[in-house]
Structures are given as structure tokens and as C-alpha cells.
Design a protein around this nucleic acid. Sequence first.
DNA 1: AGCGATGTTCGCCG
DNA 2: TCGGCGAACATCGC
Length: 261
Amino acid sequence: MPELPEVETFKRYLDKTSLNQTIKSIKVIDDRVLDIDGLSLKELVVNNKFESSTRLGKYLLVNIGKKYLIFHFGMTGDLEYYNNKDHEPKYSKVIFHFNNGFNLTYISLRMFGRLDIAESIEEFVEKKNLGTDAYKMNFEEFKRALKRRTGIIKNVLLNQSFIAGIGNIYSDEILFKTKVHPKTKIDSLSESKTKELFTNIKEVLKVGIDKKGDLSTFPEYFLIPHRKKDDYCPICNSGIERIELSGRHGFYCPNCQKESI
DNA sequence: AGCGATGTTCGCCG
DNA sequence: TCGGCGAACATCGC
């Protein structure tokens, strides 16, 4: 599922279930999800504990001693905490067994997610060239970062080295709320639209976090329930359109979201 | 049964 | 040298 609100939900879930318990052993079911070798992973976690966690964009960084275990969820990643007595969740790729008889499993259905290890958050940010987290960025920083950008607004929002955490679905929702066409050139945005865009990034992400990343619970007047062919805009009732850019599919309302500002 | 998918990375182009 | 953008990646559900 994971864009920023989903990863934030995973963070809260991990914090609630899995912190400060000794990890007895791990089971690597498919090592293709590992960016590190299985031995280093074992060495890092076995007989140690998840001490705390930090979310950065779409990544979840779990502090263990001086290092970080990094969860990335790709498009279909998930976490599940379950009892030994229950059966292993489907598509589990790596399982952490705790002393208390429970397990945390890292699930990845389509193999796009990865686990990695970093010596520090700074090192990781540099390695991935990550921008400031979308939920933590302030307006001054947003404007400063925008100055160097010239591309299409949707691609800018999706660019993790500019602002980290926004993905395809939330970018569409943010642009819908701001009433801006996804192909609008970023440098043509007025000051007031820029401010509005910034505000809406926060607001849309906040709704997502409040909804625990569950897109099926979004209100009717959002674009999200209408992201399908032949559906209609909840604001003006025009037909929703689908466009392709950079290999991704976006949805927008051609009446509410005009190209010119 | 083929298409599409909420992610990142890489390589080409200007 | 850097930013922008399209393609590639793996696999399963609808």
C-alpha cells in the first residue's frame, strides 16, 4: 500500500507491537528482498531489540544499537505481528521471532520492497538522495526547493529527492484539491497557488494518516474514490480523465483542474 | 487471460 | 554536471 500515510501507519503499528523485545531468531524466506546479506541482518538483529523507529518519506528506519534496519515497502509491502500459534501470513519474506512467542513479518507481494541496513540516518539520506519528509517540510524550505525545478508538477511531487513521501495516488489527490492540472509546469505556479499547494500537501497527507492509509475510507468528495475509468468528479460531475506520464497513470478532473493558473 | 499496479533505479537526452 | 523523463523491474489479483 505504501505512500507516506501508510508507512506512518506501519510505524505506529511496529511501535505498538514490536519495540523492546528480544529477537530470538529470524527467518529469511526470500533473500531477494535483502539489500544486505542475510548474515549481516542476522548479526544486527538476533539477541537485540528494535529500540525506536523513525519514518522518513516512504521508509521506516528502525534503530538497533548504533545502526538502523530500514524497511521499504515498494508497492505491496506490509507488516504483520502474529502469534506463533497462528499460521504464517502469505507472502512473508522475512520474519522476526521474538522471545514472547510472537513474530513480526515483513510481507512483500510483488518483490518491490527491500530491507537495508544503515550506519546512520544521514548516511541513508545521502545514499538515497532523499529530500525532506513531506509531512515535516516547512513552507520556506518548500519554496526554496521549488526554485530549482522546472518540470511538470506531478513529477515534481513524485520526486523523492525534492520532497519525500508522496506517491502516485496522493499526488493526484493533492493536485485535485489544489485545482491544478497534473501537467502544469511547476515554474508557472503563482505565489498563492504555491502556498495552496503546500497547504494541501499537508492536509491530504493528514487525512491519509487519520484514515490509517486506508484508501477505501476516504470521503466521497475526494478524488480517491473516483480513480477509475468512466467515473465522475465529485465536485462538478465532469468525467474523470486518465493520463499517462513517466510511465505512471494519473487521474484528474479536466474541468476543475485547468492547465493555466 | 491479459492488463494494470500506491515503488525505485537507471540511462539517455538536452 | 545536473535535472527531467521514460523504461524496466517481479508477480499476482481482477
